[in-house]
Design a protein around this nucleic acid. Structure first.
Lengths: 130, 130, 130, 130
DNA sequence: GTGGTCTAGACCACC
DNA sequence: GTGGTCTAGACCACA
């Protein structure tokens, strides 16, 4: 099974699923056009309710990550060009600043932080735009 | 007023306040020992409920960012040494990986991502450990 | 091939086919009495299931757009006079109001909307009643 | 009660609610900042389940029509500038073409169609951009 | 009090 | 078989 959920994680179950699918797409474990497990199947595998998986899949469809339509199995969607570049960049920056602040307060130096970022990105983005 | 809340930001109001105090401490606008605005005062200034500010201050106290005792004004706490280094690093890395995945799916290349990280960190960490 | 299906279009496949046949009849690419592709032939060409094309053809027959009898090829039916004029107009108006609302919420002005409508109609209704 | 649902309408209940809220915003019956009925309250009023209204509200939030956050009542959001103009226009045009084809097949002439469009738009867009 | 999540089970539409 | 909708009722998090 590619995916799993963690009861102790404070994030909603459906969001954990969303995140893991995204990660799998980005690092190449799932390629464009590849089929995802069915909602019932994945729900069984994860030990969660059908609707929880369903909600995750709908979010992924709304984000353009997967093709999801009634009667057909879910598939990884073809990449679509981004809309507002500026807006995207600012959103990402805000999220990074937040983590950077937390890191600093936890005693992580700027150098250590940079190293962590590099390690996090390296080898994790096989499916990402170069 | 140092702080503000954003109606459009989907995060809880108390979390926005927590984040802004953290940011202010990290970038040096608030130094160790400095007093924070009173709960009522800040609630008025932000146009939010007393409970909301109170909750934010409690979270900040729980994180060791501020000293908060009844009858006394809130102050920025002295930095305390980090507990589990390994654990801290892994938590940060997980959060960065998540953002990196979102960025990749939004069409941001690895190079652009690195540049955004640098810009986010630079000049924002005056109060951070070097 | 006159027709095609779009994987990204959220509408059911059979509905896409229905719509394209309607469009072809209206703009004159298909005339009254002209034969349509066979069910198997079209299903192959589109890469969809036989059932899907079959369902589309049944809907078209139910709407009086085509003649469909067992053992004979499907043909574009002769135009039949409308049943309830008032009812028809109101249905169309309701659907337009819905689009107009979406357009307005997406920042399209009334003038722009009118221009889009004109462009959409112009040159697309060669087979329509004048 | 501003809203209602129709059992005979083939569209999902939650979508009917979404549409009606949009219409109310566009024609000025709901202004920016105005509060919407609570999910439970509206569900009672419409005779539907709480979750159905909840889903409608979440869709409206995802579309940027309303501000919706835990603990606070739902409000009509401030208008936000559109992202991709070209894409928006094409989507609208496609939907109009579809209606135009249906209209033509139902015996509506081009002139009648234009008149219907004008009537549909006139007086219905008080809250729309001019 | 508000919205948000999860479970459970029924039934429908599409392929 | 697939996903999509609706109902029902419990419990949680925010304000």
């Amino acid at each position: 099974m590619l995916f799993s959920v963690d009861e102790k994680d404070p994030r909603p179950l459906y969001e954990q699923i969303v995140m893991q699918v995204k990660a799998a797409v980005v690092d190449g474990r799932l390629s464009v056009g590849e089929i995802l497990p069915g909602v019932r199947e994945l729900a069984d595998g994860l030990g969660v309710n059908l609707h929880t998986v369903h909600k995750a899949y709908q979010r992924l469809r709304d984000s353009g990550i997967i093709d999801l339509r009634i009667g057909r199995r879910a598939r990884v969607a073809a990449r679509t060009p981004p809309a507002g570049k500026r807006e995207v960049d600012r959103t990402i920056m805000r999220r990074i600043e937040e983590i950077a602040a937390d890191a600093a307060l936890l005693g992580v130096s700027r150098q250590e932080f940079s190293r962590i970022v590099e390690r996090a990105v390296a080898g994790k983005l096989k499916g990402a735009p170069s």
